[in-house]
């Protein structure tokens, strides 16, 4: 191209180099051989097919992986439930073995007469152990009343299983004999208590998980 006369130029002193488009479109030198340029790569269709296949595989893999994570969480919750149930049963076992049924507390006006499902035990030294089920909150409570406490003292109940995490959906205390065997006219049987417990998670995804278990303990007091 001929250079414009100086008075028609926009910028003086600037040299513009025309680009050789052909050199830009050529492949780099190391891909050139005597037979012509050889550029290897993937066609568009190959890429599309590969992406579709990868998408299908990912769907399957991620789906099963997500299910696996859910199962792990459910198993962790199940393990927690199991350990809580074991704890409750151990508590129950210890209390029943070391005491006997407190028949006097089942009389009208006494602690075990008021509430529905409950258990009143008394040890040799007069300490009373109470188990009471609160059906509105679905919590199993326990209390220890020393022998020196007066009848009018309020009974301090504490939950047996963490109430914010677990809910007791069912329980039953069944003891035998129902009448005090220390009175000779009543059937003479060694006291024993049957404990049945149903526990579920209180909130969260796995509220259908439930553990139900039962055991019976015979009193060691003679």
């Amino acid at each position: 191209m001929k250079a414009l006369p100086r008075h028609k130029r926009l910028l003086t002193g600037v040299k513009i180099k025309m680009l050789n488009i052909k050199s830009l479109c050529q492949p780099p030198i190391w891909k050139l051989n005597s037979k012509g340029p050889k550029v290897s790569g993937f066609t568009l269709i190959e890429l599309l097919v590969a992406i579709v296949i990868i998408g299908i595989m990912l769907t399957l893999v991620l789906g099963s992986y997500w299910t696996f994570l859910q199962t792990q969480q459910k198993m962790a919750m199940s393990r927690e439930l199991q350990s809580e149930v074991r704890f409750a049963f151990n508590r129950f076992t210890d209390k029943v073995r070391s005491s006997t049924i407190d028949y006097s507390s089942y009389a009208p006006g006494q602690p075990c007469a008021i509430t529905g499902s409950n258990l009143c035990l008394v040890s040799l030294d007069g300490t009373k152990h109470l188990f009471a089920y609160d059906s509105t909150d679905q919590v199993l409570n326990m209390a220890v009343v020393p022998a020196t406490a007066a009848a009018s003292d309020p009974i301090l109940f504490e939950p047996l299983l963490s109430p914010d995490k677990f809910v007791v959906t069912g329980q039953n205390f069944d003891f035998s004999p129902t009448l005090d065997p220390s009175i000779l006219a009543n059937p003479q049987l060694q006291p024993k208590v049957t404990f049945y417990l149903e526990v579920s998670p209180r909130s969260g995804l796995y509220q259908d998980l439930v553990i139900e278990s039962q055991t019976t303990i015979s009193s060691r007091q003679y």
């Binding site: 065997p181 060694q190 278990s213 039962q214 015979s218």
Partner: peptide, 19 residues
Amino acid sequence: YMAQECTELARNLRDTAWI
């Protein structure tokens, strides 16, 4: 816990026989 129940029941039978 069921096995525990079983052994406790057996013990209870012995104790009741004593009584």
